[in-house]
């Protein structure tokens, strides 16, 4: 059906001076954009996809944080006088714990690059453990706050605090499950054949979740 070779028309066509673009040499592309395969894209599929996932997450948290800021700015007094203060000190220490888990994750990637399977599993486990510790401390603080009378429904203060921090905690929890699964797979010897996509994706996501925290910490606890 399709013409496979080009024949010139017998009678010329009206073109209004428009000429077809000059066709390229040999292959198909002119310029580095799309040369004939094989060709390595600057960012492989996994990295690209994670990048866009992070864009979407940023918009999600952007919605939450801007909503929080709106309520905060329009409130007459903030924080409301009769509510308990947030535990800044403990949470600051906890922030360091979360950072440490990110370091452990970076170390795990290092181990992968050096093909050190045992170190990989160990460091993944460490990252997950630190992340878990972060969540536990957060949970403990929540329980204390609730017992002091700050709840989701008490007012805009409680609402925003638990929603924002809770949304982050849910992300940490999700990422934690992901890290745990990846660590298990690594322990079973996956990722040694060079197909490291899930692991790299997981690492990127973990760093994102960690990097998100300081922003929320500053927004919710400090300012």
């Amino acid at each position: 059906m399709t013409t496979l070779t080009v024949e010139h028309p017998t009678d010329p066509r009206r073109t209004n001076g428009s000429l077809p673009p000059v066709p390229p040499e040999g292959g198909g592309g002119d310029g580095p954009d799309r040369d004939p395969a094989p060709r390595r894209p600057p960012l492989d599929n996994v990295r690209l996809a994670m990048l866009f996932l992070i864009c979407a997450e940023v918009m999600f948290f952007g919605g939450l944080v801007s909503a929080f800021l709106v309520l905060r700015v329009t409130a007459a007094v903030w924080p409301p006088p009769l509510q308990p203060r947030l535990p800044v000190g403990v949470t600051a220490v906890n922030t360091l714990v979360l950072f440490a888990s990110s370091v452990a994750m970076a170390a795990a990637r290092q181990a992968l690059r050096r093909d050190d399977a045992r170190a990989l599993v160990r460091r993944l486990g460490l990252a997950a453990g630190l992340g878990g510790a972060f969540l536990l401390v957060q949970g403990y603080e929540w329980v204390r706050l609730v017992s002091f009378g700050l709840t989701l429904s008490s007012d805009a203060y409680g609402t925003t605090f638990y929603s924002l921090i809770g949304a982050h905690a849910a992300h940490v929890l999700g990422a934690l499950v992901w890290v745990a699964v990846v660590a298990l797979l690594a322990a079973r010897g996956r990722f040694t054949d060079g197909r490291t996509g899930p692991l790299r994706a997981c690492a990127i996501y973990w760093h994102f979740v960690v990097a998100l925290w300081p922003i929320l910490f500053v927004a919710v606890y400090l300012i």
């Binding site: 395969a37 996809a49 866009f52």
Partner: peptide
């Protein structure tokens, strides 16, 4: 998926 596919998986010559 769409974005990644369009950025990375075009055929040779598909600028």
């Amino acid at each position: 998926n769409y974005i990644t596919t369009i950025i990375n998986m075009r055929a040779p010559g598909m600028k």
